[in-house]
Every structure is written in structure tokens, then in C-alpha cells.
């Protein structure tokens, strides 16, 4: 037996790295099916202070970089939403079970950065997540698709040359701007954080002061 062990010592020693390699090769599945589709990598900040957020992303045009400085200036409950021009939306029939939360933000970013397609959500102390959506009010097309950019000058939808050219033609997005997002939530929902994300797994999370 000992002779057999000695005779096969190299083979036996190789079994352990072979097993480890097999496991490591399978871990690709975690990366593919889970990690990259969920928000996991946080950039944290607090209300009133600018937070620098940067990430790389891919789209149909290529591989790009996105960077911005985000300040959440205030988060308040309001009676009714306003459209991007600041006019109250009259036919926003807010149901009895709901309320509107206005998120005011200040953003500084290069006019060429792709900020289109951001997802904004509010989290409460128990972890409930309410996402901004533009389609919750029937007959209302007033809310913008992307809540984090000025509706009149949205900037490029991609890093590619065509999208960049289109954005310049439409009037470039200012290098710094204020924007308000109106989020419909359940009545009594008390947000404790604002989350903004484009491409998972990265996201920005701004903690709100407890009142």
C-alpha cells in the first residue's frame, strides 16, 4: 500500500488542484447567471453631499465609461407631480392608497456622458424598494422615461459617434443641472435611501437623514 502511494504520489498530489480547478471553472455560472444582473457594488453617500460615481458599460456601439457627481438635495412628499416644464400634472389622479415623493438632484457630468436610461428607486427602512416608473398613471405621458436627466436636453443615448452627434444636434446637455423626479409610492412609505443605477452590478446609494 505504501509502495502504491509512493509510486502514485505525483498523480495523487495532482488530484487536489484538479478538483479545485473543476470547481473554479464552474464558478463562471455564478458570474453569468447571478452576479452581473443584480446591484452588488455600491457607491455610498449622504443627502446634500456630492458623490462621485463611475462605471464602465457596454452597449450595441461599444465599450464606454460613465462618470458623474450626484447630489441628492432634497426628498419630500408632495401632493401632485409636475411635468418637466414645472407645470402641475392636472389629471394625475392620485389614488387614496398612494402618495408622491419628489426627489431633487443636482448632477455634474460631461455633456457627452451617457446618462439616458437610469433607474431611480427609493428604499425604506424595511428594505422595500419602490422604483420610479413613467407609466403608472393612465392617460399621463408627462413623466420622462429617464428621471435623472433634463427632459429637454437628454444628452446621448449611447457612446457611439452617431448618438453623440444626434445629442449635439438636439442641443447638448448642460455640464451641471438640477432635476426633479416624481416617484409614486404607497401612502406612508418613508424613504431612507435613494438608489440610482444604470448598469448592474454598480449603483449609487444616497442615505437620507432620519426625521
Amino acid at each position: 500500500m505504501t509502495a502504491w502511494l509512493r509510486g502514485n504520489r505525483w498523480g495523487l498530489a495532482l488530484v487536489i488542484p484538479a478538483l479545485l480547478l473543476a470547481l473554479a471553472a464552474n464558478s463562471l455560472r455564478l458570474q453569468l447567471f447571478w452576479w452581473t444582473y443584480k446591484p452588488h457594488v455600491a457607491t455610498s453617500g449622504v443627502q446634500g453631499k456630492p458623490v462621485h460615481f463611475a462605471e464602465d458599460f457596454d452597449d450595441f456601439d461599444g465599450h464606454w465609461h460613465r462618470a458623474l457627481d450626484l447630489t441628492v438635495t432634497s426628498v419630500t412628499t408632495v401632493a401632485a407631480p409636475r411635468d418637466p416644464d414645472g407645470k402641475p400634472i392636472d389629471d394625475a389622479r392620485t389614488p387614496a392608497e398612494a402618495q408622491w415623493v419628489k426627489v431633487s438632484m443636482h448632477v455634474a457630468a460631461s455633456p457627452t456622458a451617457v446618462l439616458f436610461g437610469c433607474r431611480l428607486s427609493l428604499l425604506d427602512a424595511s428594505g422595500r424598494e419602490t422604483e420610479y416608473t413613467d407609466g403608472n398613471l393612465v392617460d399621463s405621458d408627462y413623466l420622462p422615461i429617464s428621471p435623472c436627466i433634463p427632459d429637454a436636453h437628454q444628452g446621448p443615448v449611447s457612446g457611439g459617434p452617431k448618438a453623440q452627434g444626434d445629442a449635439v444636434e438636439a442641443g447638448p446637455r448642460p455640464a451641471a443641472y438640477d432635476v426633479d423626479a416624481y416617484v409614486l409610492t404607497a401612502r406612508g412609505f418613508r424613504p431612507t435611501a435613494v438608489r440610482l443605477q444604470w448598469t448592474p452590478p454598480r449603483y449609487v446609494q444616497i442615505a437620507l437623514p432620519t426625521t
Binding site: 403608472n136 409610492t185 404607497a186
Partner: peptide, 9 residues
């Protein structure tokens, strides 16, 4: 059916 919000039927 839309994007339904937590706690809001």
C-alpha cells in the same frame, strides 16, 4: 398590468 409598487394595489 403595469409596474406595480410595493404596498400599492
Amino acid at each position: 398590468c403595469g409596474n406595480s409598487i410595493p404596498g400599492l394595489p
